[in-house]
């Protein structure tokens, strides 16, 4: 029966020893152990957090880089395109100008040729006129050296005039 009956002496010692053990362990064992474990857990959590953050940062950095690269590429393409366009337009312009110039030169040349031609014709005409007059003079002189010939001419001219 006394197997299931509590004993005062043992209760006293159990209480004393257990309470002191609880106090001593709490102060000298659990506190430092759990403190260190907690500190370590925090450290690990922090490290993991940092890693995660760095990863995210790297990700955004990469994305940023990519965007920048894309932008740069687009810009380059645009620049190339622009340059080509510019070059093309320059060439076109130049071509047009050259053509125009050539046209102008040709026109000018034509004009000057025409002028020259006209001048030459005029000169030729006047020359021919003078020559004709000279010839005519000479002929007339020759014709009119005699009075009958002069009379005949006047008659002829008068005939013509009457017919009108």
């Amino acid at each position: 029966m006394d197997l299931v009956l509590p004993d005062f002496g043992l209760l006293f010692w159990t209480g004393l020893v257990f309470c002191s053990l609880l106090f001593l362990l709490a102060k000298f064992a659990w506190k430092p152990i759990l403190g260190a474990v907690n500190a370590r857990e925090e450290k690990i959590a922090e490290a993991l957090d940092l890693a995660e953050k760095t990863k995210a940062e790297m990700k955004t950095l990469k994305a940023e880089n990519e965007a920048l690269l894309k932008e740069a590429r687009a810009e380059r393409d645009k620049m190339l395109k622009d340059a080509k366009k510019q070059a093309d337009s320059f060439i076109d312009d130049s071509k047009g100008k050259a053509k125009e110039e050539a046209q102008k030169i040709i026109t000018d040349a034509r004009d000057s040729i025409q002028n020259e031609k006209n001048a030459a014709i005029t000169e030729l005409k006047s020359h021919v006129g003078a020559l004709s007059i000279e010839i005519a003079e000479k002929i007339i002189q020759n014709e009119l050296s005699k009075d009958e010939k002069q009379k005949a001419l006047v008659d002829k001219i008068l005939d013509k005039t009457n017919m009108n």
Binding site: L25, K31, I33
Partner: peptide
């Protein structure tokens, strides 16, 4: 109790000496 205290105390001493390490 003494055994338990000694075991736990020596375990705690490790952390006191080495800090928050494995």
């Amino acid at each position: 109790s003494l055994l338990l205290f000694l075991i736990m105390f020596s375990a705690a001493r490790f952390y006191k000496k080495n800090g928050a390490v494995a």
